[in-house]
């Protein structure tokens, strides 16, 4: 009996100390990790999409319901709001940044941030500019589907599931935008004024 109590006691104390320590470290590094994710995950896609912006979109951001919205001021005076949504691909979730022109409600550009797709096939969703470009200038609020599903998105050859995932992410972005458009426009105006 004594031995059993000792076993339980030792393991409980060890696990509690471990849990406490990790919680503290997690809290301590949370801000730094968030900054790193912004810089390395969303930053590159953002900078590519908003190349030529006159401000720093990484700094000019606001959040609604824990989603980050980045505001880019383009040289022609239009304001682009960019945010990230996810769709499921072949190897896991695909993060897609969708930029919308808030004056016209049309998509400005999209860019893939994180993915675990097959290198050389699905990974081209991130690197093939032709694939991303077909979303540009389309209405933001609509259902995107690949041609195999009866839509009009040209799927990447050999990566239909990935293309479907990206389409689903952009569709989801449209839904979110439809819901939050007044708030987004309001906050974007405050950012840019």
């Amino acid at each position: 009996m004594r031995e059993m109590i000792k076993m339980i006691l030792v393991i409980t104390i060890l696990a509690s100390v471990s849990g406490g320590l990790l919680a503290a470290v997690k809290q301590g590094t949370a801000a730094q990790i968030e900054a790193q994710v912004l810089k390395f995950v969303q930053g590159p896609a953002l900078n590519k999409m908003l190349a030529g912006a006159t401000n720093d979109p990484l700094n000019d951001r606001f959040d609604i319901d824990d989603t980050d919205f980045f505001v880019g001021k383009m040289p022609d005076g239009s304001n682009i709001v960019v945010f990230e949504t996810f769709g499921s691909g072949y190897g896991g979730p695909i993060g897609v940044m969708v930029g919308v022109n808030i004056a016209t409600d049309k998509i400005f550009a999209i860019g893939v941030t994180t993915h675990t797709e097959t290198p050389g096939l699905g990974s081209r969703a991130q690197t093939d500019p032709k694939f991303a470009r077909q979303f540009a200038d389309k209405n933001m609020v609509q259902v995107f589907k690949v041609k195999a599903d009866g839509g009009d998105v040209d799927a990447l050859a050999g990566a239909t599931v990935t293309s479907m995932g990206v389409s689903a992410a952009v569709t989801r972005a449209g839904e979110l935008y439809e819901k939050l458009a007044p708030q987004i426009k309001d906050k974007a105006r405050q950012q840019t004024s």
Binding site: M7, V10, I11, L14, A15, S18, L21, L22, V25, K26, T29, Q32, I33, Q36, V37, K39, F40
Partner: peptide, 26 residues
């Protein structure tokens, strides 16, 4: 219960490394 204790100790340090690496060597 030594193996369980060892694993708790090891797992703690691994999580620590993971968090620190995420924060400083992304």
């Amino acid at each position: 219960v030594r193996i369980a204790c060892f694993i708790v100790v090891i797992a703690t340090f691994v999580c620590l490394v993971e968090l620190l690496m995420q924060a400083y060597a992304y």
